[in-house]
């Protein structure tokens, strides 16, 4: 069948593509590491250039000049900036991210980040999952019923979702589904290790608040791509062979639509991180987003630096992963 349709016939087999893919992966990871390094320098000098002082956050407004001087000496903040950065970098290569200055004074930042990361990863994946599921349903429904009421409704939901900022969406969901109907808690977090169902229940609203705007973007992309794909000659050809619509949809249309769709998904991942920062605070989820906001307000340079590294690494890794998936899905796409 595929020979007849000519879409996959000349493509090399999966195993043949692994060699160049592995090389490509290595290259991407290396360049990613360089970007990460440049990122740490950019962040370090930017946050240090911002006015404010971690000593004031840690010791409070009532701190004496002696106490502030002692604080600066204790954490090496009295050294020249370049020295401080090199120290940080040396520590970083040895897996030491320094001590927290002002959000959990004296605590190792690495431990702090590891303690907070699971909640963010959990909520982030939950949000991504919801966004993908919602968009697959809405986008497909809209494309298959183009111009009909279903399309209008699905598209309207998408426009609604994309125009609602995540913090607003959070409060709408809290007032509607939590305070109004009592279906979900308005606040709080349950670790998946304590209770998986509890975690899903407690983080459903925050995940949905992050997912809604993304789902809207995904759905609109999918709708456009599907409509374009549906009008392709090979779809007409497949229909003329008498293949059933669901089969065509899954095997020819959705598969070909996946590459542009996943590219958009990959690009939007950074919005999950942005959303997490806002939504974690509203729902009291003890994650990296909350930690980063606290770190920024308190001028806890080490914490802020570590959170940025983590976020940057996630974005880089996800982009590589999406590229890999696209390369594997699309035999015509050659890796360079």
């Amino acid at each position: 069948m595929s020979e007849l349709l000519g879409t996959q016939a000349k493509a090399p087999g999966l195993s043949e593509r692994w060699g160049p893919v592995a090389l490509y992966l290595l290259k991407r990871l290396l360049s990613g590491a360089l970007v990460l390094l440049a990122g740490t320098a950019a962040v370090f000098f930017t946050i240090q250039a911002a006015p404010g002082d971690p000593a004031l956050s840690a010791l409070g407004e009532q701190a004496t000049p002696e106490a502030i001087a002692a604080f600066r000496a204790e954490y090496g903040l009295d050294a020249p900036l370049m020295v401080q950065y090199v120290r940080w970098l040396l520590g970083f290569f040895q897996g030491d991210l320094g001590q927290s200055l002002a959000v959990a004074r004296g605590m190792p930042v690495g431990a702090l980040v590891l303690q907070k990361l699971p909640a963010t990863v959990f909520v982030g994946f939950f949000a991504l999952f919801l966004a993908v599921v919602l968009s697959l349903v809405l986008g497909t429904l809209a494309a298959l019923n183009r111009g009909k009421a279903t399309d209008t409704i699905a598209t309207s939901i998408a426009v609604f979702g994309v125009s609602m900022p995540d913090f607003w969406m959070s409060y709408v969901l809290i007032f509607g589904l939590s305070l109004g109907l009592g279906l979900f808690p308005a606040f709080g977090y349950v670790a998946p290790s304590t209770s998986l169902t509890g975690a899903l229940h407690a983080t459903f609203l925050p995940a949905l608040a992050i997912a809604a705007p993304m789902a809207a973007v995904f759905a609109r992309t999918l709708r456009a791509v599907l409509i374009e794909t549906l009008s392709k000659p090979y779809v007409t050809a497949a229909k003329s062979f008498g293949l059933r619509r669901p089969f065509i949809l899954v095997h020819f249309v959705l598969r070909n639509a996946m590459v542009p769709y996943l590219t958009v998904v990959g690009l939007q991942i950074r919005y999950i991180l942005g959303g997490v920062v806002v939504v974690e605070r509203i729902f009291g989820i003890p994650g990296i987003g909350s930690l980063m906001v606290d770190g920024a307000f308190a001028r806890d340079y080490n914490v802020l630096q570590a959170c940025t590294v983590v976020f940057l690494a996630i974005v880089l890794l996800v982009n590589v992963a999406v590229d890999m998936i696209c390369a594997l899905l699309d035999p015509k796409q050659t890796v360079k």
Binding site: S178, L179, G182, F187, I282, G284
Partner: peptide
Amino acid sequence: IAEEASGVTALQG
């Protein structure tokens, strides 16, 4: 609870 508004909804909820 960093956001006072979240404190109110958490109490109401």
